[in-house]
Each structure stands twice: as structure tokens, then as C-alpha cells.
Design a binder for these strands. Structure first.
Lengths: 218, 218
DNA sequence: ATGTGTGAAGAGCTTCACAGCC
DNA sequence: GGCTGTGAAGCTCTTCACACAT
């Protein structure tokens, strides 16, 4: 049994469980069943149990899972211990909101560097970070040991910035620009696109209503 | 061949293609191959062709797809024509950034109503919308014919608000609070959780590096 | 020569259903 | 009684590989 035998969707769900468990801890819940955890994460109970079974026996039959122990196990599996520093490129509306979003630190992330090419923004302090010019950005990011950049620049400049960061050997980009970010191997990228998520949601919601109506009628 | 025979992942990807095609249009590209579109969307070329094949023959052998025609076809399949109004609940850092994010309108969405329970925020105009009190919120949302709410309230209050919106018969919620949003049937919900996305990205990026090293060594 | 369209094969994931344990 | 852990079955999705069109 190696990492290759574990469904990649199982890995992705571990992060969802992780998040749900931190919420349960905050609520003071000590024990959780696969059924309850499944409800919160919107998957089936069988999926929850199967997912954990790839890594060991974390529960107690007849009882459920101890929230704290389960969280520790997932943290270990995902190697998600230490606070992680990230960099932000682009200090517009989105970038500014992220800098002021203090919750990141609770969740193990800190925006340690912020860059913008607009001279009027350079030098300003937002949250606890001072905006720097994009010149020499790659070097500064690397020398601080940062692996992940949040890209919040206008759509038109995103591909260029992403490609130059990729050349610098950066590991990962979380982008708010969904366009044309074909990337070389060796760099992972995820696009956050709220409009697209809303469009998907509405499609599925409307489909569900339509199916429900059909069931009532015929 | 009914809607039920089409992989749900195909449907989800149509939205990704849609977005990529709008970017290609803006760049002035007239023709695109499955290979190129696949690169942009980070899937395989076979997946792209297979996805379209469920709905018809949109391309020209030896040439590729006409960007505009393909976009029109996808728009029709997804029934994604008219501008859509949505409501925002919670005008904190995130909510304010969304209200100022003018790009939504380019992408077919408009935040038509905004609510907050903080009296100091009620009455203020942000972007083109005036913040209202949350009292009577459900009624106002329904009477405007809105199906989707963006939920940007503190984690602790999110479950309560979500449940009350569900009772009002709302169709869908896009939430920035990932916690304990077990929902009744009939309402669709998607959680946007940037910390979790970053954690996933870093995991996959580091795994990839480790695998690359192993290949070099052995 | 180039790139789409597609049945068939293959891979991967989820559900089932029940044994095992508290 | 209640809930976990898990092989086997079943299903869904992706990849393959090549016919077909320009």
C-alpha cells in the first residue's frame, strides 16, 4: 500500500474533513460519527469510513471517532503542521481584502510579502505587510523560502506574471485570474473563479428543481 | 441519450471551457484545437473532445473549433444567457471586496441586494448597492426573484443564516464559511475556502517535487 | 498532414452489505 | 443496539486508438 494506491479524491477530501473537524473542536464536540461528518462535508458515510481506512483504524466501533485524535491523524497524514508563509502579487480590491483577512493566520497561513507594480501602492502598509515593487519579486520570494503565491492581478497581466514565477522555480500559484494559465510541468496552479462557481451552483440548483417537479407531475 | 447519461464532471468542465473561451475571444483568437483548450483548462485533449461529443459535433476535422460557435453552443447547453441577480449577506472585508468587484457584471452576475445586521453598516452605499438590515431579508430576496445568495458572514453565524435562507426556499448558497453547513435537500451549497485550497495546492506541489526527486535518484 | 469524433477497453472510485467490535 | 472497517461488486469516467473529414 503506497501513496499511489490511494485515490487522489480521498486525499482532497481529507482537507475537507480537516476543516470540518477544526470547526467541531471549536464547538466543543468530542466525538463524531461517519454519518455526521458526512453530512457536514456533503459526502456519503461509506466514503468517510473508506477514506480513513486507507490510513488505519481511527474510530471505535459502536462509538465513532474522537474528534481530536482524528484531527491529529489527518494533520500527520497531510503533513500540515507548521504555519506557512505565502506571498501576494497584486494589491487591488481582492488583494487588499486578503491582506485584511486575519483569519488566514488562524488557519495556518500568513501573507508575508505583498507586491504591486503601481508606484502609488508601493510603500503602503496594509494589515501587517508593506507593499513592495514587483521588481526583483521572484528573488525575494525564493530567498524567504516561500512556495506559494496568491495571484490577484488583472486578468490581462496574469499569464505573464505566472510564467515568470514558474521560471523562478515556484511550486504553486493560487490565481484569481482564470485565463490562459497554461503552465509548464513542475508548477501547480488552482484558479478561484467565483462567477464560475455561481454559474455551476445555479445550473445544479435549477436542474434539481426541474427534476423534483418532474417527479411530482409524473 | 438524456441528461442523466452525461457525466456530471463533463457538465462541470463545460463551465471551465466556457470561461476559457471568453478569454480566447477577448484575445481575438478565432480557432482553437482540443489540444490547446485542454492545456488552458488543464485536462487531456481526449477529455475535451469526448465532453463535446455528448452534445453534438462542434468542430471541423483537421481544423479545430471555431471559438465563437463553440462558446454559443456551450452557452445554449448550460442555459447561461441572461444577466443574473444575486444577493450578498455579510458586508465585512470579503463582502465589501465583492461589492467593489466590478468584474462580476462583465461575467453575467450582479449583486442586487446587500445585507448586514450591524446598524453602523446599514444605509451605507458600497459600489452601486445600499446595505440593508437583515430583518425581512428572506422576503426581499424572494420577491426580487433571486435564487442565489453569497454568504460572507462570520463562521459562527453562518449555519444559522444558511438554515433560515434554506427555509425561505432559496435555491443556492455560495458560502465563505466552511463550517457545519449541513443543509436540507433542495438547496445547493458550495463553500469557498482559500486556506483549504492553499493547503491542497501545497500538498500536491510538494508531493510532485518529492516524486521528481525519487525519479532522479533511483 | 492535421485534428475531430467515438466505440471499446481499461482504470479508478463508490456503494454495498456484512463481519467485527464496543 | 450502534457504528466502524473492508473485500467484492458495481458503476462511472477516462484513455486508447483509429476511422473519418478537410
Amino acid at each position: 500500500m503506497t501513496i499511489k494506491d490511494i485515490p487522489s479524491q480521498t486525499i482532497d477530501r481529507l482537507f475537507t474533513y480537516f476543516r470540518a473537524l477544526t470547526c467541531l473542536i471549536r464547538e466543543g464536540t468530542e466525538t463524531v460519527s461517519s454519518k455526521r461528518l458526512a453530512e457536514i462535508c456533503r459526502v456519503s458515510a461509506a466514503v468517510v469510513r473508506k477514506d480513513f481506512s486507507y490510513f488505519g483504524e481511527f474510530g471505535t466501533r459502536g462509538v465513532g471517532y474522537n474528534v481530536k485524535d482524528l484531527l491529529d491523524n489527518i494533520r500527520r497524514i497531510l503533513d500540515f503542521d507548521s504555519p506557512t508563509e505565502v506571498a501576494l502579487v497584486g494589491v487591488g480590491n481582492v488583494g487588499r481584502a486578503l491582506l485584511q483577512h486575519s483569519q488566514f493566520e488562524l488557519e495556518g497561513f500568513k501573507i508575508a510579502l505583498a507586491f504591486d507594480k503601481d508606484p502609488r501602492k508601493v510603500g503602503h502598509k496594509i494589515g501587517s505587510v508593506t507593499v513592495q515593487d514587483t521588481k526583483g519579486m521572484g528573488k525575494k520570494i525564493r530567498s524567504r523560502g516561500i512556495d506559494l503565491v496568491i495571484l490577484a492581478v488583472p486578468d490581462s497581466t496574469a499569464p505573464g506574471v505566472a510564467k515568470s514565477l514558474a521560471k523562478e522555480g515556484l511550486g504553486a500559484i493560487l490565481s484569481f485570474s482564470p485565463c490562459d494559465l497554461a503552465m509548464p510541468d513542475g508548477i501547480k496552479i488552482t484558479c478561484v473563479d467565483l462567477s464560475m462557481e455561481m454559474a455551476r451552483l445555479l445550473y445544479h440548483s435549477r436542474l434539481q428543481s426541474r427534476l423534483a417537479e418532474m417527479r411530482l407531475e409524473g
